[in-house]
Design a protein around this nucleic acid. Sequence first.
DNA 1: ACACTTACTAGAATCCGTTCTAACTTCGGT
DNA 2: ACCGAAGTTAGAACGGATTCTAGTAAGTGT
Lengths: 205, 205
Amino acid sequence: MEAVQDLPPGTAPGLRTKSQLQRRRRILQAAAALASRGGVEAMQMRTVAERAGVALGTLYRYFPSKMDLVVAVVGEELDMLESSIARRPPAAATPDGRAVDVLMRATRGLMREPELADALIRALILADVELPFGDRMAGLLVRVAGLSDGHATEEQGVLAASLGAVWVQELLEMLRGRRTYEDIQRRIEIAASRLLAEFPASRVE
Amino acid sequence: MEAVQDLPPGTAPGLRTKSQLQRRRRILQAAAALASRGGVEAMQMRTVAERAGVALGTLYRYFPSKMDLVVAVVGEELDMLESSIARRPPAAATPDGRAVDVLMRATRGLMREPELADALIRALILADVELPFGDRMAGLLVRVAGLSDGHATEEQGVLAASLGAVWVQELLEMLRGRRTYEDIQRRIEIAASRLLAEFPASRVE
DNA sequence: ACACTTACTAGAATCCGTTCTAACTTCGGT
DNA sequence: ACCGAAGTTAGAACGGATTCTAGTAAGTGT
Protein backbone atom coordinates (compact mmCIF):
# COMPACT_ATOMS: atom_id res chain seq x y z
CA MET A 1 0.00 0.00 0.00
CA GLU A 2 2.98 2.29 0.13
CA ALA A 3 4.86 4.33 -2.39
CA VAL A 4 7.74 3.12 -4.43
CA GLN A 5 10.55 4.99 -2.85
CA ASP A 6 13.22 3.38 -4.90
CA LEU A 7 13.12 2.72 -8.59
CA PRO A 8 11.90 6.03 -10.02
CA PRO A 9 11.41 6.18 -13.77
CA GLY A 10 14.25 6.20 -16.23
CA THR A 11 17.41 4.50 -15.22
CA ALA A 12 16.22 3.40 -11.85
CA PRO A 13 18.66 4.23 -9.10
CA GLY A 14 19.06 1.79 -6.27
CA LEU A 15 19.69 -0.92 -8.80
CA ARG A 16 23.38 -1.51 -8.60
CA THR A 17 24.15 -4.34 -10.91
CA LYS A 18 23.24 -5.02 -14.48
CA SER A 19 21.45 -8.20 -13.55
CA GLN A 20 19.16 -6.23 -11.29
CA LEU A 21 18.13 -3.97 -14.09
CA GLN A 22 17.47 -6.99 -16.20
CA ARG A 23 15.41 -8.55 -13.45
CA ARG A 24 13.35 -5.44 -13.17
CA ARG A 25 12.87 -5.38 -16.89
CA ARG A 26 11.88 -9.03 -17.00
CA ILE A 27 9.37 -8.45 -14.25
CA LEU A 28 7.76 -5.48 -15.93
CA GLN A 29 7.65 -7.33 -19.19
CA ALA A 30 6.07 -10.40 -17.66
CA ALA A 31 3.56 -8.24 -15.84
CA ALA A 32 2.55 -6.33 -18.94
CA ALA A 33 2.31 -9.50 -20.97
CA LEU A 34 0.10 -11.19 -18.43
CA ALA A 35 -2.11 -8.16 -18.03
CA SER A 36 -2.47 -7.78 -21.78
CA ARG A 37 -4.71 -10.75 -21.76
CA GLY A 38 -6.72 -11.64 -18.76
CA GLY A 39 -6.36 -8.21 -17.17
CA VAL A 40 -5.54 -7.68 -13.54
CA GLU A 41 -6.72 -11.05 -12.43
CA ALA A 42 -4.41 -12.81 -14.85
CA MET A 43 -1.56 -10.77 -13.56
CA GLN A 44 -1.06 -12.66 -10.35
CA MET A 45 2.00 -12.01 -8.32
CA ARG A 46 2.99 -15.67 -8.24
CA THR A 47 2.57 -15.92 -11.97
CA VAL A 48 4.48 -12.76 -12.67
CA ALA A 49 7.29 -13.97 -10.45
CA GLU A 50 7.37 -17.36 -12.05
CA ARG A 51 7.23 -15.98 -15.55
CA ALA A 52 9.96 -13.48 -14.80
CA GLY A 53 12.10 -16.29 -13.42
CA VAL A 54 12.24 -14.70 -10.00
CA ALA A 55 11.20 -15.75 -6.53
CA LEU A 56 8.02 -14.33 -5.11
CA GLY A 57 9.97 -12.62 -2.36
CA THR A 58 12.20 -10.96 -4.89
CA LEU A 59 9.26 -9.67 -6.85
CA TYR A 60 8.04 -8.09 -3.65
CA ARG A 61 11.43 -6.58 -3.04
CA TYR A 62 11.28 -4.85 -6.39
CA PHE A 63 7.62 -3.93 -6.18
CA PRO A 64 6.27 -3.84 -2.64
CA SER A 65 2.73 -4.37 -3.81
CA LYS A 66 0.83 -5.33 -6.89
CA MET A 67 -0.19 -1.74 -7.23
CA ASP A 68 3.36 -0.55 -7.33
CA LEU A 69 3.94 -2.98 -10.11
CA VAL A 70 0.96 -1.72 -12.03
CA VAL A 71 2.03 1.86 -11.54
CA ALA A 72 5.41 1.03 -12.96
CA VAL A 73 3.84 -0.59 -15.97
CA VAL A 74 1.70 2.47 -16.50
CA GLY A 75 4.78 4.63 -16.23
CA GLU A 76 6.30 2.77 -19.12
CA GLU A 77 3.18 3.20 -21.20
CA LEU A 78 3.26 6.90 -20.49
CA ASP A 79 6.87 7.04 -21.56
CA MET A 80 5.83 5.51 -24.83
CA LEU A 81 3.02 7.98 -25.29
CA GLU A 82 5.32 10.89 -24.61
CA SER A 83 7.91 9.73 -27.02
CA SER A 84 5.24 9.07 -29.63
CA ILE A 85 4.10 12.63 -29.19
CA ALA A 86 7.59 13.93 -29.42
CA ARG A 87 8.01 12.00 -32.64
CA ARG A 88 4.81 13.20 -34.20
CA PRO A 89 3.41 16.22 -32.39
CA PRO A 90 -0.27 17.02 -32.68
CA ALA A 91 -0.91 19.25 -35.64
CA ALA A 92 -4.24 20.85 -34.83
CA ALA A 93 -4.45 24.62 -34.92
CA THR A 94 -6.12 25.27 -31.59
CA PRO A 95 -4.91 24.29 -28.11
CA ASP A 96 -8.02 22.28 -27.47
CA GLY A 97 -7.63 20.59 -30.82
CA ARG A 98 -4.13 19.53 -29.95
CA ALA A 99 -5.20 18.29 -26.55
CA VAL A 100 -7.99 16.24 -28.05
CA ASP A 101 -5.55 14.85 -30.54
CA VAL A 102 -3.22 13.66 -27.82
CA LEU A 103 -5.96 12.21 -25.68
CA MET A 104 -7.52 10.31 -28.53
CA ARG A 105 -4.16 9.00 -29.55
CA ALA A 106 -3.69 7.71 -26.04
CA THR A 107 -7.19 6.29 -26.12
CA ARG A 108 -6.47 4.33 -29.27
CA GLY A 109 -3.29 3.02 -27.72
CA LEU A 110 -5.16 1.81 -24.68
CA MET A 111 -7.97 0.32 -26.72
CA ARG A 112 -5.49 -1.93 -28.40
CA GLU A 113 -5.04 -3.75 -25.10
CA PRO A 114 -8.33 -3.34 -23.33
CA GLU A 115 -7.53 -5.74 -20.55
CA LEU A 116 -4.28 -4.03 -19.84
CA ALA A 117 -5.93 -0.64 -20.04
CA ASP A 118 -8.59 -1.70 -17.62
CA ALA A 119 -6.11 -3.02 -15.16
CA LEU A 120 -3.92 0.01 -15.40
CA ILE A 121 -6.55 2.69 -15.15
CA ARG A 122 -8.31 1.16 -12.25
CA ALA A 123 -5.17 0.47 -10.39
CA LEU A 124 -4.04 4.01 -10.92
CA ILE A 125 -7.17 5.44 -9.51
CA LEU A 126 -6.91 3.18 -6.57
CA ALA A 127 -3.30 3.85 -5.96
CA ASP A 128 -2.29 5.32 -2.68
CA VAL A 129 1.04 5.85 -4.26
CA GLU A 130 2.37 9.06 -5.56
CA LEU A 131 0.83 8.73 -8.89
CA PRO A 132 2.84 10.41 -11.55
CA PHE A 133 -0.19 9.90 -13.71
CA GLY A 134 -2.61 12.74 -13.29
CA ASP A 135 0.25 15.15 -12.99
CA ARG A 136 2.13 13.75 -15.90
CA MET A 137 -0.92 13.73 -18.09
CA ALA A 138 -1.85 17.25 -17.07
CA GLY A 139 1.69 18.44 -17.76
CA LEU A 140 1.60 16.77 -21.10
CA LEU A 141 -1.65 18.47 -21.96
CA VAL A 142 -0.41 21.86 -20.86
CA ARG A 143 2.65 21.36 -22.98
CA VAL A 144 0.74 20.16 -25.97
CA ALA A 145 -1.85 22.86 -25.68
CA GLY A 146 1.01 25.17 -26.45
CA LEU A 147 2.02 26.84 -23.26
CA SER A 148 5.71 27.13 -22.66
CA ASP A 149 6.34 24.09 -20.59
CA GLY A 150 7.57 25.65 -17.40
CA HIS A 151 5.47 28.67 -16.63
CA ALA A 152 1.83 27.74 -16.97
CA THR A 153 -0.73 29.78 -15.12
CA GLU A 154 -2.34 28.05 -12.18
CA GLU A 155 -5.59 28.35 -14.07
CA GLN A 156 -4.08 26.64 -17.07
CA GLY A 157 -2.80 23.85 -14.92
CA VAL A 158 -6.19 23.36 -13.34
CA LEU A 159 -7.90 23.30 -16.69
CA ALA A 160 -5.48 20.79 -18.13
CA ALA A 161 -5.84 18.59 -15.09
CA SER A 162 -9.59 18.87 -15.41
CA LEU A 163 -9.52 17.71 -18.97
CA GLY A 164 -7.34 14.83 -17.86
CA ALA A 165 -9.89 13.92 -15.22
CA VAL A 166 -12.68 13.95 -17.75
CA TRP A 167 -10.67 11.74 -20.03
CA VAL A 168 -9.96 9.20 -17.34
CA GLN A 169 -13.61 9.08 -16.44
CA GLU A 170 -14.59 8.54 -20.05
CA LEU A 171 -12.05 5.77 -20.37
CA LEU A 172 -13.56 4.09 -17.37
CA GLU A 173 -16.98 4.32 -18.92
CA MET A 174 -15.60 2.83 -22.08
CA LEU A 175 -14.10 -0.05 -20.16
CA ARG A 176 -17.49 -0.59 -18.63
CA GLY A 177 -18.86 -0.86 -22.12
CA ARG A 178 -20.84 2.33 -21.87
CA ARG A 179 -18.93 4.38 -24.40
CA THR A 180 -17.69 3.80 -27.90
CA TYR A 181 -14.58 5.40 -29.25
CA GLU A 182 -16.76 7.91 -31.08
CA ASP A 183 -18.65 8.76 -27.90
CA ILE A 184 -15.43 9.53 -26.17
CA GLN A 185 -14.16 11.63 -28.99
CA ARG A 186 -17.29 13.70 -29.12
CA ARG A 187 -17.44 14.16 -25.38
CA ILE A 188 -13.79 15.01 -25.01
CA GLU A 189 -14.12 17.54 -27.79
CA ILE A 190 -16.99 19.20 -26.04
CA ALA A 191 -15.18 19.37 -22.73
CA ALA A 192 -11.90 20.46 -24.31
CA SER A 193 -13.53 23.23 -26.29
CA ARG A 194 -14.83 24.66 -23.07
CA LEU A 195 -11.82 24.06 -20.90
CA LEU A 196 -9.06 25.00 -23.27
CA ALA A 197 -10.61 27.69 -25.40
CA GLU A 198 -8.09 30.43 -26.10
CA PHE A 199 -7.64 32.58 -23.09
CA PRO A 200 -7.48 36.21 -24.02
CA ALA A 201 -8.33 35.86 -27.67
CA SER A 202 -11.62 35.59 -29.49
CA ARG A 203 -14.07 32.78 -29.08
CA VAL A 204 -14.93 31.14 -32.28
CA GLU A 205 -18.56 30.27 -32.53
CA MET B 1 -18.30 -8.63 -9.37
CA GLU B 2 -21.91 -8.34 -10.52
CA ALA B 3 -24.62 -5.80 -10.13
CA VAL B 4 -27.21 -5.84 -7.41
CA GLN B 5 -30.22 -6.92 -9.33
CA ASP B 6 -32.48 -6.94 -6.37
CA LEU B 7 -32.67 -4.32 -3.70
CA PRO B 8 -32.85 -1.06 -5.64
CA PRO B 9 -32.98 2.11 -3.58
CA GLY B 10 -35.96 3.12 -1.56
CA THR B 11 -38.15 0.39 -0.24
CA ALA B 12 -36.16 -2.45 -1.63
CA PRO B 13 -38.30 -4.97 -3.45
CA GLY B 14 -37.45 -8.60 -3.11
CA LEU B 15 -37.43 -8.18 0.62
CA ARG B 16 -40.63 -9.76 1.75
CA THR B 17 -40.68 -9.57 5.48
CA LYS B 18 -40.06 -6.80 7.91
CA SER B 19 -37.19 -8.65 9.49
CA GLN B 20 -35.44 -8.77 6.15
CA LEU B 21 -35.63 -5.02 5.80
CA GLN B 22 -34.24 -4.70 9.26
CA ARG B 23 -31.42 -7.09 8.46
CA ARG B 24 -30.57 -5.07 5.42
CA ARG B 25 -30.65 -1.91 7.44
CA ARG B 26 -28.48 -3.39 10.16
CA ILE B 27 -25.97 -4.54 7.58
CA LEU B 28 -25.72 -1.16 5.88
CA GLN B 29 -25.43 0.54 9.20
CA ALA B 30 -22.70 -1.78 10.40
CA ALA B 31 -20.86 -1.37 7.13
CA ALA B 32 -20.99 2.40 7.23
CA ALA B 33 -19.97 2.47 10.86
CA LEU B 34 -16.98 0.24 10.24
CA ALA B 35 -15.92 2.15 7.16
CA SER B 36 -16.22 5.45 9.01
CA ARG B 37 -13.12 4.61 10.86
CA GLY B 38 -10.53 2.38 9.36
CA GLY B 39 -11.84 2.77 5.83
CA VAL B 40 -12.33 -0.11 3.44
CA GLU B 41 -9.90 -2.36 5.18
CA ALA B 42 -11.76 -2.06 8.46
CA MET B 43 -14.95 -2.91 6.69
CA GLN B 44 -14.31 -6.60 6.41
CA MET B 45 -17.11 -8.84 5.38
CA ARG B 46 -16.72 -11.08 8.40
CA THR B 47 -16.75 -8.09 10.69
CA VAL B 48 -19.73 -6.50 9.03
CA ALA B 49 -21.63 -9.75 9.30
CA GLU B 50 -20.73 -10.22 12.91
CA ARG B 51 -21.55 -6.65 13.83
CA ALA B 52 -24.85 -6.82 12.00
CA GLY B 53 -25.68 -10.01 13.85
CA VAL B 54 -25.90 -11.99 10.64
CA ALA B 55 -24.11 -14.99 9.25
CA LEU B 56 -21.46 -14.44 6.61
CA GLY B 57 -23.48 -16.40 4.12
CA THR B 58 -26.48 -14.19 4.74
CA LEU B 59 -24.46 -11.07 4.23
CA TYR B 60 -23.42 -12.45 0.89
CA ARG B 61 -27.00 -13.22 0.04
CA TYR B 62 -27.94 -9.60 0.59
CA PHE B 63 -24.83 -8.17 -1.02
CA PRO B 64 -23.15 -10.58 -3.42
CA SER B 65 -19.82 -8.81 -3.07
CA LYS B 66 -18.13 -6.26 -0.94
CA MET B 67 -18.45 -3.82 -3.78
CA ASP B 68 -22.19 -4.22 -3.90
CA LEU B 69 -22.25 -3.40 -0.25
CA VAL B 70 -20.18 -0.30 -0.78
CA VAL B 71 -22.33 0.80 -3.66
CA ALA B 72 -25.40 0.47 -1.51
CA VAL B 73 -23.81 2.56 1.21
CA VAL B 74 -22.93 5.23 -1.33
CA GLY B 75 -26.47 5.16 -2.60
CA GLU B 76 -27.69 6.06 0.83
CA GLU B 77 -25.23 8.90 1.10
CA LEU B 78 -26.40 10.23 -2.24
CA ASP B 79 -29.98 10.05 -1.08
CA MET B 80 -29.02 12.20 1.84
CA LEU B 81 -27.28 14.72 -0.37
CA GLU B 82 -30.26 14.96 -2.66
CA SER B 83 -32.68 15.46 0.11
CA SER B 84 -30.40 18.03 1.68
CA ILE B 85 -30.40 19.89 -1.59
CA ALA B 86 -34.12 19.65 -1.90
CA ARG B 87 -34.40 21.08 1.59
CA ARG B 88 -32.05 23.96 0.98
CA PRO B 89 -31.41 24.53 -2.71
CA PRO B 90 -28.27 26.31 -3.81
CA ALA B 91 -28.86 30.03 -3.97
CA ALA B 92 -26.13 31.29 -6.27
CA ALA B 93 -27.13 33.38 -9.23
CA THR B 94 -25.23 31.57 -11.99
CA PRO B 95 -25.49 27.94 -13.04
CA ASP B 96 -21.85 27.34 -12.33
CA GLY B 97 -22.22 29.01 -8.95
CA ARG B 98 -25.02 26.68 -8.05
CA ALA B 99 -23.09 23.66 -9.23
CA VAL B 100 -20.07 24.67 -7.18
CA ASP B 101 -22.32 25.17 -4.22
CA VAL B 102 -23.68 21.65 -4.49
CA LEU B 103 -20.32 20.04 -5.04
CA MET B 104 -18.73 21.82 -2.14
CA ARG B 105 -21.62 20.90 0.07
CA ALA B 106 -21.08 17.29 -0.89
CA THR B 107 -17.37 17.73 -0.29
CA ARG B 108 -17.93 18.98 3.22
CA GLY B 109 -20.23 16.07 3.89
CA LEU B 110 -17.62 13.62 2.74
CA MET B 111 -14.85 15.33 4.65
CA ARG B 112 -16.70 14.69 7.85
CA GLU B 113 -15.98 10.98 7.43
CA PRO B 114 -12.77 10.86 5.45
CA GLU B 115 -12.23 7.16 5.84
CA LEU B 116 -15.72 6.42 4.70
CA ALA B 117 -15.39 8.84 1.83
CA ASP B 118 -12.16 7.28 0.77
CA ALA B 119 -13.58 3.81 0.82
CA LEU B 120 -16.70 4.80 -1.01
CA ILE B 121 -15.16 6.86 -3.74
CA ARG B 122 -12.51 4.38 -4.59
CA ALA B 123 -14.85 1.49 -4.56
CA LEU B 124 -17.24 3.35 -6.79
CA ILE B 125 -14.65 4.16 -9.32
CA LEU B 126 -13.55 0.60 -9.34
CA ALA B 127 -16.99 -0.81 -9.52
CA ASP B 128 -17.86 -3.02 -12.41
CA VAL B 129 -21.41 -2.53 -11.38
CA GLU B 130 -23.81 -0.21 -12.99
CA LEU B 131 -22.94 2.68 -10.87
CA PRO B 132 -25.73 5.10 -10.43
CA PHE B 133 -23.09 7.47 -9.23
CA GLY B 134 -21.64 9.38 -12.15
CA ASP B 135 -25.03 9.53 -13.74
CA ARG B 136 -26.81 10.53 -10.61
CA MET B 137 -24.28 13.21 -9.83
CA ALA B 138 -24.37 14.53 -13.37
CA GLY B 139 -28.15 14.59 -13.34
CA LEU B 140 -28.08 16.42 -10.06
CA LEU B 141 -25.72 18.99 -11.48
CA VAL B 142 -27.78 19.50 -14.60
CA ARG B 143 -30.81 19.97 -12.44
CA VAL B 144 -29.16 22.33 -10.07
CA ALA B 145 -27.51 24.30 -12.82
CA GLY B 146 -31.02 25.26 -13.72
CA LEU B 147 -31.95 23.27 -16.78
CA SER B 148 -35.40 21.81 -16.75
CA ASP B 149 -34.69 18.37 -15.45
CA GLY B 150 -35.85 16.29 -18.36
CA HIS B 151 -34.68 17.90 -21.54
CA ALA B 152 -31.03 18.80 -21.20
CA THR B 153 -28.98 19.20 -24.32
CA GLU B 154 -26.47 16.45 -24.93
CA GLU B 155 -23.82 19.10 -24.57
CA GLN B 156 -25.17 20.14 -21.21
CA GLY B 157 -25.17 16.57 -20.07
CA VAL B 158 -21.59 16.12 -21.14
CA LEU B 159 -20.51 19.27 -19.41
CA ALA B 160 -22.23 18.37 -16.19
CA ALA B 161 -20.71 14.90 -16.28
CA SER B 162 -17.33 16.49 -16.92
CA LEU B 163 -17.62 18.70 -13.91
CA GLY B 164 -18.57 15.64 -11.92
CA ALA B 165 -15.48 13.85 -13.15
CA VAL B 166 -13.30 16.75 -12.16
CA TRP B 167 -14.85 16.81 -8.74
CA VAL B 168 -14.29 13.12 -8.19
CA GLN B 169 -10.68 13.47 -9.20
CA GLU B 170 -10.18 16.38 -6.84
CA LEU B 171 -11.76 14.41 -4.04
CA LEU B 172 -9.34 11.60 -4.68
CA GLU B 173 -6.46 14.01 -4.53
CA MET B 174 -7.79 15.34 -1.29
CA LEU B 175 -8.03 11.88 0.15
CA ARG B 176 -4.45 11.37 -0.87
CA GLY B 177 -3.61 14.44 1.15
CA ARG B 178 -2.70 16.50 -1.86
CA ARG B 179 -5.52 19.02 -1.69
CA THR B 180 -7.09 21.11 1.01
CA TYR B 181 -10.71 22.05 1.03
CA GLU B 182 -9.76 25.47 -0.26
CA ASP B 183 -7.74 23.99 -3.11
CA ILE B 184 -10.71 22.02 -4.20
CA GLN B 185 -13.02 24.96 -4.01
CA ARG B 186 -10.74 27.12 -6.09
CA ARG B 187 -10.14 24.43 -8.67
CA ILE B 188 -13.77 23.43 -8.96
CA GLU B 189 -14.70 27.06 -9.38
CA ILE B 190 -12.25 27.43 -12.21
CA ALA B 191 -13.46 24.32 -13.97
CA ALA B 192 -17.12 25.10 -13.38
CA SER B 193 -16.79 28.62 -14.68
CA ARG B 194 -15.49 27.22 -17.93
CA LEU B 195 -17.76 24.25 -18.21
CA LEU B 196 -21.03 25.78 -17.11
CA ALA B 197 -20.72 29.36 -18.20
CA GLU B 198 -23.99 30.64 -19.59
CA PHE B 199 -24.50 29.27 -23.02
CA PRO B 200 -25.83 31.92 -25.32
CA ALA B 201 -25.41 34.87 -22.99
CA SER B 202 -22.48 37.15 -22.27
CA ARG B 203 -19.20 36.17 -20.76
CA VAL B 204 -18.29 38.30 -17.83
CA GLU B 205 -14.68 39.45 -17.46
C1' DA C 1 41.17 -15.57 -0.22
C1' DC C 2 38.06 -14.04 4.01
C1' DA C 3 34.56 -12.13 6.33
C1' DC C 4 30.32 -9.71 5.88
C1' DT C 5 26.56 -7.42 4.31
C1' DT C 6 23.01 -7.63 0.96
C1' DA C 7 20.17 -10.04 -2.61
C1' DC C 8 17.77 -14.18 -3.96
C1' DT C 9 15.28 -18.61 -3.53
C1' DA C 10 11.92 -21.98 -2.09
C1' DG C 11 8.37 -22.56 0.44
C1' DA C 12 5.39 -22.22 4.48
C1' DA C 13 2.22 -19.15 6.80
C1' DT C 14 -1.27 -15.41 7.28
C1' DC C 15 -5.04 -12.51 5.97
C1' DC C 16 -9.26 -11.54 3.80
C1' DG C 17 -12.78 -12.00 0.10
C1' DT C 18 -15.62 -15.41 -1.50
C1' DT C 19 -17.76 -20.07 -1.96
C1' DC C 20 -19.55 -24.27 -0.18
C1' DT C 21 -21.91 -27.54 3.10
C1' DA C 22 -25.09 -29.35 6.12
C1' DA C 23 -28.31 -28.56 9.49
C1' DC C 24 -31.94 -25.38 11.36
C1' DT C 25 -35.82 -21.72 10.81
C1' DT C 26 -39.35 -19.14 8.90
C1' DC C 27 -43.04 -18.45 5.77
C1' DG C 28 -46.91 -19.25 2.71
C1' DG C 29 -50.25 -22.28 1.26
C1' DT C 30 -53.36 -25.94 2.36
C1' DA D 1 -51.25 -28.33 12.31
C1' DC D 2 -48.28 -29.85 8.34
C1' DC D 3 -45.31 -29.61 4.06
C1' DG D 4 -42.14 -27.94 0.97
C1' DA D 5 -39.59 -23.81 -0.61
C1' DA D 6 -36.73 -20.30 0.54
C1' DG D 7 -33.89 -17.93 4.20
C1' DT D 8 -30.44 -18.43 7.95
C1' DT D 9 -26.57 -20.15 10.53
C1' DA D 10 -21.98 -21.81 11.95
C1' DG D 11 -18.18 -23.09 10.17
C1' DA D 12 -15.02 -25.25 6.91
C1' DA D 13 -12.67 -24.55 2.54
C1' DC D 14 -10.52 -22.15 -1.40
C1' DG D 15 -7.81 -18.58 -3.89
C1' DG D 16 -4.77 -14.88 -4.29
C1' DA D 17 -2.07 -11.00 -2.17
C1' DT D 18 1.20 -10.32 1.18
C1' DT D 19 4.47 -11.67 4.87
C1' DC D 20 7.81 -14.52 7.07
C1' DT D 21 11.67 -17.87 7.58
C1' DA D 22 15.76 -20.35 6.83
C1' DG D 23 19.09 -21.15 3.87
C1' DT D 24 21.94 -20.19 -0.46
C1' DA D 25 24.40 -17.05 -3.77
C1' DA D 26 26.50 -12.74 -5.02
C1' DG D 27 28.99 -8.38 -4.34
C1' DT D 28 32.19 -5.45 -1.43
C1' DG D 29 35.87 -4.08 1.42
C1' DT D 30 40.27 -5.72 3.42
